[in-house]
Computed example of a mutant assay.
Amino acid sequence: MRADDRNFGCRIKRDLVYKGYEAVVMENEAFRLTVLPGKGTDLIELLHKPTDTDFAWFTRLGLRPKEAAFGDFQSQYEGGWQEILPNLGGRHQHRGTELEAYGEAALSAWRYEIAEDGPARIRVVFRLELRSLPLAIEKSIEMTSGEAGFRLEERLTNVSPSVVHADWGHHITFGEPFLVPGTLISLPDGETCYALPAKGSPGGFGVLPAGAGRYALRRPGGIGAEVSWDAEVWPYLWFWRDHGGEASPPYFGSHYNVGLEMFSSPPAAALEDSIAAGTAVCLAPYGTVSASLAFQVLLP
């Protein structure tokens, strides 16, 4: 049997197109992950198969084909999970180079290769060379048989003889139908830091202490998810929440979701702001920074 025809254990489906985007599906007996290398390696499916629980959240518009009139991050934002690099804020100039809002990594097509493909374990490596700054990023996603989750290993490299700064992180959102009022969010000490209110409640935005680099969300008496990461590289945990209580754009009160997003810096309008604050990742000439992240389903 060809590896890409295997229908048991760990397996990978490739050469797929979903809504106009190249897609890669990684799965095992318990979990299915769908990645869009053609759209910034967005993760658009985080499915626990035994309970049919998908932790990925979609906006009211969902995933739409790329169109010339709507090429920016917000216009293409479908929800889900994005890699953010090399900047966090709005579109601006940095050292004479135009940086797109939220960085080019989430707007670009990545290359990928199958590094391991057996029923016990699979691993896919995604790569991107940025155009705006002399940076190359490599992301390895690994899944093991029977485990409800996956592990992500990343390496960011300065490919120039100059010092290069960047902001870097992961824009992860959760929403309905997984999220319900009463869902609890906890940090590494196990104490609840937030309980989701009723739909129609006010939302908000802030930064939580990343601590040891771990948080969990759990429905009342039910399933949940834990995300853990290298807090030394991504020491700021952004906490965005929209409970449908605001009628302002871009969502017009249509959503019930939270974002729990680990970044190298607190919110900043421009990369220069993070550099001035001393929070931007600093890469020496030809230097490398590595980091890891894991997603795990929590059962009742």
Rank of each mutant, 00 (worst) to 15 (best):
D230A: 06
R123V: 07
T144K: 13
P249A: 14
N28P: 10
A115G: 06
S140M: 09
L156R: 03
G211R: 06
L298W: 03
T183W: 05
A291P: 03
S140L: 05
S186T: 15
I44A: 06
Y112C: 01
K199E: 11
R95V: 07
P119M: 00
S162C: 14
S274H: 08
G9T: 01
L271V: 07
D52E: 15
G149W: 01
F31A: 12
M26K: 10
I114L: 04
F174Q: 09
H171Q: 00
R14S: 13
E104L: 00
T144E: 15
F73K: 03
L237W: 00
A136Q: 13
V17H: 09
N158I: 01
P37T: 06
V24I: 11
A269Q: 13
D54I: 06
R14W: 09
R60E: 15
A280N: 01
T288N: 08
R95L: 10
Y194K: 14
R111W: 11
E67M: 11
Q93T: 09
E67Y: 09
L260Y: 02
A56K: 10
S145L: 09
L237H: 02
T59I: 00
R11F: 11
D42Y: 14
P235F: 02
Y236Q: 15
D273H: 13
G222L: 07
R155P: 03
A106I: 00
D242T: 09
P249V: 08
S160N: 00
P188M: 05
G259K: 07
G259E: 08
P202F: 03
L260R: 06
P202C: 04
G211Y: 01
R121S: 06
L237T: 07
I114W: 10
F263K: 05
D189H: 04
V207E: 08
R32L: 12
F174H: 12
G287D: 00
V25R: 15
F31S: 12
L187M: 09
D42A: 11
G96P: 01
A247P: 13
M26V: 12
Y18I: 14
R95M: 11
K13Y: 12
D4E: 15
P285I: 00
L299Y: 06
E100V: 12
G253C: 06
P250Y: 11
S140P: 03
M26G: 07
E153Y: 11
P249T: 10
F150V: 01
V258R: 04
A109L: 03
D72V: 02
L99H: 03
G90Q: 08
A101D: 04
L298F: 00
E98Q: 11
W234F: 14
E45V: 14
C10Q: 10
F263C: 07
G175L: 05
P266S: 15
S290G: 07
S228G: 10
Y112A: 02
V163D: 10
G253W: 06
T59A: 04
C193T: 13
C282N: 10
P209Y: 01
E191H: 12
F178H: 08
L85V: 04
P250T: 12
L156A: 02
L33D: 05
A148R: 03
E246H: 13
F150H: 10
G71W: 08
G79K: 04
I172Q: 11
Y215G: 02
Y194V: 15
P50Y: 00
P50S: 04
F31Y: 12
